Amino acid sequence: MDLRQLQYLVAVAEEGSVRRAARRLYMAQPPLSQALLRLERDLGVELFTRTSKGVILTDAGRELVGRAREILHQVEDARFAVQSTASDESTTLRIGAVAGPLSAGELTRPILDAFRALHPEVTVKLRDTSFADQVDLIASGVIDVALVRCPIVHDEVEVIPIAAEPRALFVRSTHELASEKVLSVDDVTGYPMLALDAPEWFSGFWQLDPERGHSLVDARLAPVSTVQGIQLALAASQTVVTGCATMARFAPSPLIRAIELPDASPSVIGVAYRRGETRSIVRSFLDAAAMAAAENIAVLPNATSSV
Rank of each mutant, 00 (worst) to 15 (best):
P266Q: 06
I259F: 11
S265C: 05
S267Q: 13
Y273R: 02
Q238V: 03
C244Y: 04
V241Y: 05
A251M: 13
G213M: 11
I259Q: 03
L216D: 09
H214Q: 11
E260H: 15
P223W: 09
V227K: 01
V271Q: 00
A235E: 12
A233G: 08
L221C: 03
S225V: 05
T246F: 11
C244W: 01
I256K: 02
Q231E: 13
Q207W: 08
T226N: 04
R212Q: 12
Q207A: 14
G243Q: 11
L232E: 08
R220F: 09
L255P: 08
S237M: 02
S225M: 07
G243C: 10
A258C: 07
V217R: 08
I230D: 01
T226H: 11
S253H: 10
P252K: 14
I269V: 14
R212W: 13
A236F: 04
P254E: 11
L221H: 06
R220W: 04
Q231A: 12
Q238T: 15
E260Y: 04
R257G: 03
A251D: 10
Y273A: 02
G229K: 06
L261K: 03
R249K: 15
L221W: 06
S215C: 14
L216P: 05
V217C: 15
A245M: 12
L234H: 01
I259S: 04
Q228D: 14
